[in-house]
Write a protein that binds this DNA or RNA. Structure first.
Lengths: 256, 256
DNA sequence: GCGTAAAGGTATGAGGTCGAACCATTGACA
DNA sequence: TGTCAATGGTTCGACCTCATACCTTTACGC
């Protein structure tokens, strides 16, 4: 190991420590692509995951640009992209009439062929999820939640139970997971869960939904929310771990 | 709740669901600043955290640019910045002689005045760390590690014990935490731990080091590595949780 | 009704970023 | 000792991104 690093390049001199592969691993890119594509993808994810349900209004462009850390010009390009994809409509003038969500919610729109190319990324998302989402539950249960935060959780839970079809159920599901993350009030946790749920969503819409799985999931969701509201951090985390494990087992078979 | 969202903007129409604040939280910006600054910061962090120890050689520019997801031109600007800051030196020609790390390792270089401005970000890092690093231990302990991965852990542990001064100790410490993340082989976990350690480093170099704390830390480090090598995931996680809690308690007092 | 404020739509110039090609240097290997 | 391949250094044009204005539309409040 002192002869060279794992990349095969020899160390420069006899006395110099080998960099191991730690260095390369630490510097991996997360700055993906252009701001424009990034913006489109994040908006599309937010909509697909139910953060902006069908019929809701996006924040004003100027405000949204600040939130997302891009210029208004770039944001407008992204919105134009979503518009031509049929995800949003735009009206002018004062008041709520700005950009409205028009979620397609196509059931079974899963493009399973593309998933194979992203296999590594998606498998990693399952590993990371198993760490982050139970952690979010632990943190959420440890906080003293305000009444409206408790409502966000119970409302999201109720929305799952009353989902009309499979697509609506899928969206309500991810919405609950995002809601749990949001009540932690930790930007880092919210960001991690959002990223994980986006990948998870791509996988879940590609597999058929079995009623038995849905009922099992719903029971876990109820237990998780109850544990969070009751302040039982360990139990909330443990239940979410089981939930992640079950979903992961279901999905790992999907990608060979 | 159906009257308007938490941002104070009224809902567009009577039938439209309110977006709650979920949407805004999910879209928060992680695309920070320019690629150039981002690049400088990540390289500087990697060096300060010990991923590239003093005297080691960085990968070739072309390769590094791909790894970090920036163009070679941008990467070169970043390296030029580090060079003028005295962190690296550059030689030309074939072989290992390319860019050599020249870590200053200034003891007590902590700029405590700047930390106050970043209070929110740093407090969040402590919360996220308490989720991510124990999770990394759990995952690492659950894997069957190859011999060289086990060496990475034991070497990093030994380097802490034999650190000459406080600065070297600090670097060896973060290096162990990065090593634990790296043996999970999960890019997402490595990325999260790197980010968290960078913030942690900024805080830790700003406080005085007490021998009693160091000994306590070292005992925890030994227990963590032992648990990971022994495959005891629960114990590895639990011990890392205590470790994070202890450090966090020490640091939370630092920022009012 | 009418004025005004709150939104989206448009234009422009500065500077950042990229990709690709080519030059210059120097150690490794025959 | 000479060749050459690996690596840093340099240049250039295309495109992206940003910030800042200013215009247009439309609902809300008086």
């Amino acid at each position: 190991m002192s002869a060279g690093d794992p990349n095969g390049r020899p160390a420069a001199g006899p006395g110099r420590p080998a960099p191991v592969e730690l260095g390369a691993a630490v510097l991996a890119a997360n700055r993906g692509r252009h701001a424009f594509e990034d913006c489109v993808e994040r908006l599309a994810s937010a909509i697909r995951l139910g953060a902006f349900p069908d019929g809701s209004v996006l924040p004003p462009e100027r405000e949204l640009a600040v939130t997302m850390g891009v210029s208004r010009a770039t944001l407008r390009e992204a919105i134009a992209g979503l518009r031509s994809a049929g995800m949003v409509k735009t009206t002018r003038g004062r008041g709520g009439g700005t950009v409205v969500v028009h979620a397609p919610l196509l059931p079974g729109a899963g493009d399973a062929s593309r998933l194979a190319e992203r296999r590594g990324e998606l498998m990693d998302a399952l590993v990371f999820r198993r760490v982050v989402e139970p952690g979010a539950c632990y943190v959420a249960a440890g906080r003293s939640l305000r009444p409206e935060q408790r409502s966000v959780l119970t409302d999201a839970l109720a929305a799952i139970e009353s989902a009309a079809d499979a697509a609506a159920h899928r969206q309500a599901d991810s919405r609950l997971h995002l809601a749990i993350a949001s009540v932690t009030e930790s930007p880092a946790i919210i960001n991690a869960v959002t990223s994980v749920q986006a990948d998870l969503h791509d996988m879940l819409i590609a597999i058929p939904v079995l009623p038995v799985n849905i009922e099992h999931s719903s029971a876990q969701h109820r237990a998780i929310v109850a544990a969070i509201l009751g302040g039982d951090a360990r139990r909330a985390r443990r239940t979410m771990e089981s939930h992640c494990d079950d979903t992961a087992a279901l999905l790992r078979g999907l990608l060979t």
